[in-house]
Amino acid sequence: MRNILMLIVFLTIISFFMYVAINPGDFNSQTGEHFVFGSPKFTDMDNYFIHNAQNQTGANNVVTSIVFDYRGFDTLGEASVLFTAVLGVGLALRLLRGDKK
């Protein structure tokens, strides 16, 4: 019973994803193109990074310039995720020898 229900749920979600993937998408009357899955409607932020990253940050690797400069705060967050994980492992896998009863 549970398995059948889960199968129905799974198929529902998958069918939505499949619909989006093969959907012809919105029609842009100006360019005569369809926006299908995988062809973005906008590319201006990508182009900004490609054209300005080298000049602004002085890094040849644009990916690193995004990771550590434009979105450096996210990287700090990800680094603290690792820090949190380490602390959590240390906390959960500690032995209760030093704890009071």
Partner: peptide
């Protein structure tokens, strides 16, 4: 750094 493909130089990129 100059714009475009170049061999790269270690002493660039500021705080990165």
């Amino acid at each position: 750094v100059s714009y475009g493909a170049n061999p790269g130089y270690l002493n660039t990129a500021g705080t990165l």
